[in-house]
């Protein structure tokens, strides 16, 4: 009975719980850490989503660090060094 009421209240197309599990497991496949750590037991949907968030944050942090390293490298390189030649050939 309460089912009918909840149906009415949601107008936007929603995905079912089964679809959700399916999507989450797809997401899980591309996350190396999660996939390896527990392949056997079923990670809960919220756990997978949480780890997905952490994974994205880590990647963003890596981009931050690498940008900083690149900036240092591009600025500090000695014009006569072989590294400078690499940069020149890359950034024509």
């Amino acid at each position: 009975m309460s089912n009918r009421r909840s149906r009415q209240s949601s107008s936007a197309p929603r995905i079912s719980d089964n679809q959700m599990i399916d999507l989450v497991s797809k997401l899980r496949q591309i996350l190396p850490e999660i996939g390896q750590r527990r392949r056997s037991d079923k990670a809960s949907a919220s756990k997978v989503l949480q780890e997905t968030c952490n994974y994205i944050r880590n990647l963003n942090r890596e981009v931050d660090n690498l940008s900083e390293r690149l900036s240092q490298l591009l600025e500090s390189v000695d014009e006569d060094s072989p590294e400078a030649a690499v940069i020149r050939s890359l950034l024509m």
Binding site: V63, R69, L74, V77
Partner: peptide
């Protein structure tokens, strides 16, 4: 990006 950093280091 890591490849670039490695290559330029």
């Amino acid at each position: 990006m890591q490849c670039l950093v490695d290559g330029l280091s």
